[in-house]
């Protein structure tokens, strides 16, 4: 267990250092979601009252699309110089690699969300009517729901032709309940009309089920030869 976390943390530190120096994933995600925000606000141009009902959907769709940009780059980096093959033959547990990649993506997507949320607030004149502190667990659970399966399916689509297209095709159908949970939880807190309790439980269940499944199957996908 100890070696699992020490290897995971070492890989995570390496990924963060690489990202800090190149800022490839973060910059492309930021610019991409900025474009989505601007295009959405042109296309809908809502009043403040209406925007409360739709912005939960817009914000998560923007993050979902942007996350795919980062997720696609997760494993591509390891293909250069056969790094992934070195991982495969090394005695390090496969799950350490998976946890490091998933946590890394979680950090990158969370950073994106922290930077983009103020823009949404400004462009759509948002004022939260429900209990705002509940947005924090929604963001954490929702982001993890996106990245845990995203990291897994990105590893899966490594072995396919045109892998950049493959990832959303695999990820989006499976993510439907999670997206529904995030969007409805956010909307019910923004409007203050309903409780987000059910959706939080749904997101938590989704996270637990799929984190377990990903950890159970990742070794199989990594070593599938």
């Amino acid at each position: 267990m100890n070696s699992l976390w020490s290897i995971a943390l070492a890989t995570l530190a390496k990924d963060i250092r690489l990202e800090w120096r190149s800022k490839d994933a973060l910059n492309s995600m930021l610019f991409f979601s900025l474009l989505v925000v601007v295009i959405f606000s042109f296309s809908f141009d809502p009043l403040a009252e209406e925007s409360r009902h739709i912005v939960g959907g817009l914000i998560w769709v923007a993050f979902l699309f942007a996350a795919v940009v980062a997720l696609n780059q997760t494993w591509a980096r390891e293909l250069r110089n056969q790094v992934l093959d070195a991982y495969r033959v090394s005695p390090a547990p496969a799950n350490a690699l998976f946890l490091a990649k998933a946590l890394g993506n979680f950090i990158f997507v969370s950073a994106l969300e922290a930077l983009m949320t103020p823009l949404f607030v400004i462009f759509y004149n948002l004022r939260v009517l429900g209990p705002a502190w509940q947005l924090l667990p929604i963001v954490i659970l929702g982001t993890w729901a996106l990245v845990v399966n995203g990291t897994f399916f990105a590893a899966m689509s490594l072995r396919t032709r045109s892998r950049e297209i493959m990832l959303p095709l695999l990820l989006f159908p499976i993510s439907i309940p999670a997206v529904l949970g995030m969007v409805n939880a956010t909307t019910s807190i923004l409007t203050g009309e309903a409780s987000a309790h059910f959706w939080l439980v749904l997101l938590l269940t989704y996270d637990v089920v799929f984190t377990t499944a990903c950890l159970g199957f990742f070794g199989l996908v990594l070593h599938a030869e």
């Binding site: 072995r159 396919t160 439907i176 309940p177 269940t205 089920v209 199957f217």
Partner: peptide, 30 residues
């Protein structure tokens, strides 16, 4: 089916089988 079509290597059956299990886990949540 898209996964099956797009990956034509020897690992396809493993990947597809894992996806089928993920799909089955997803249905009750949906």
């Amino acid at each position: 089916l898209v996964l099956r079509r797009f990956s034509d290597s020897a690992q396809t059956p493993v990947l597809a089988a894992a996806l089928a299990v993920f799909g089955a886990l997803d249905v009750p949540l949906v």
